[in-house]
Amino acid sequence: MNPEPFMRLMCLGCGFSYDEALGLPEHGLAPGTRWADIPETWVCPDCGTPKHMFEMVFIGYAEGGSDLASAA
Protein backbone atom coordinates (compact mmCIF):
# COMPACT_ATOMS: atom_id res chain seq x y z
CA MET A 1 0.00 0.00 0.00
CA ASN A 2 1.32 3.36 -0.99
CA PRO A 3 -1.38 5.86 -0.02
CA GLU A 4 -1.83 8.98 -2.12
CA PRO A 5 -0.01 11.93 -0.55
CA PHE A 6 -2.21 14.49 1.16
CA MET A 7 -3.14 17.50 -0.96
CA ARG A 8 -3.27 21.18 -0.09
CA LEU A 9 -5.68 23.50 -1.85
CA MET A 10 -6.15 27.25 -1.84
CA CYS A 11 -9.39 29.19 -2.29
CA LEU A 12 -9.05 31.49 -5.30
CA GLY A 13 -11.58 33.87 -3.76
CA CYS A 14 -9.72 34.68 -0.56
CA GLY A 15 -6.65 32.45 -0.06
CA PHE A 16 -8.17 30.20 2.64
CA SER A 17 -6.34 26.87 2.50
CA TYR A 18 -7.57 23.31 2.94
CA ASP A 19 -5.03 20.68 3.93
CA GLU A 20 -6.23 17.06 3.71
CA ALA A 21 -3.81 16.01 6.45
CA LEU A 22 -5.16 18.60 8.89
CA GLY A 23 -8.82 18.70 7.87
CA LEU A 24 -10.87 21.54 9.35
CA PRO A 25 -12.00 20.31 12.77
CA GLU A 26 -13.59 23.69 13.52
CA HIS A 27 -15.78 23.19 10.46
CA GLY A 28 -16.62 19.50 10.95
CA LEU A 29 -13.94 17.97 8.70
CA ALA A 30 -11.71 15.49 10.53
CA PRO A 31 -7.96 15.33 9.85
CA GLY A 32 -7.34 13.05 6.89
CA THR A 33 -10.57 13.99 5.07
CA ARG A 34 -9.84 13.76 1.35
CA TRP A 35 -10.85 16.64 -0.88
CA ALA A 36 -12.74 14.19 -3.11
CA ASP A 37 -14.86 13.13 -0.11
CA ILE A 38 -16.05 16.67 0.63
CA PRO A 39 -19.46 17.35 -1.01
CA GLU A 40 -19.44 19.40 -4.21
CA THR A 41 -21.89 21.78 -2.49
CA TRP A 42 -19.26 22.69 0.12
CA VAL A 43 -18.10 26.31 0.00
CA CYS A 44 -15.15 28.22 1.48
CA PRO A 45 -16.02 28.83 5.16
CA ASP A 46 -14.49 32.32 4.97
CA CYS A 47 -15.80 33.73 1.69
CA GLY A 48 -18.40 31.35 0.21
CA THR A 49 -16.41 30.57 -2.95
CA PRO A 50 -17.57 27.21 -4.39
CA LYS A 51 -15.43 24.11 -3.95
CA HIS A 52 -14.52 23.88 -7.65
CA MET A 53 -12.77 27.26 -7.41
CA PHE A 54 -10.06 25.93 -5.10
CA GLU A 55 -6.67 25.16 -6.66
CA MET A 56 -4.24 22.46 -5.60
CA VAL A 57 -0.95 23.99 -4.43
CA PHE A 58 2.50 22.67 -3.60
CA ILE A 59 3.52 25.24 -1.01
CA GLY A 60 5.08 24.51 2.37
CA TYR A 61 4.08 26.09 5.67
CA ALA A 62 5.95 28.89 7.34
CA GLU A 63 7.24 28.01 10.83
CA GLY A 64 4.25 27.34 13.08
CA GLY A 65 1.91 27.64 10.10
CA SER A 66 0.50 24.12 10.20
CA ASP A 67 -0.64 24.59 13.83
CA LEU A 68 -2.44 27.79 12.83
CA ALA A 69 -3.92 26.11 9.75
CA SER A 70 -5.37 23.21 11.75
CA ALA A 71 -7.22 25.72 13.95
CA ALA A 72 -8.50 27.84 11.03
Partner: peptide, 11 residues
Protein backbone atom coordinates in the same frame (compact mmCIF):
# COMPACT_ATOMS: atom_id res chain seq x y z
CA UNK B 1 -2.33 42.20 -8.03
CA UNK B 2 -2.78 38.94 -6.07
CA UNK B 3 -0.23 36.18 -5.96
CA UNK B 4 0.41 32.94 -4.16
CA UNK B 5 3.15 33.21 -1.52
CA UNK B 6 6.34 31.24 -1.14
CA UNK B 7 5.02 29.75 2.11
CA UNK B 8 1.57 29.26 3.66
CA UNK B 9 0.53 30.96 6.91
CA UNK B 10 3.37 33.46 7.04
CA UNK B 11 3.10 36.20 9.66
Amino acid sequence: LWLMPRQLFLP
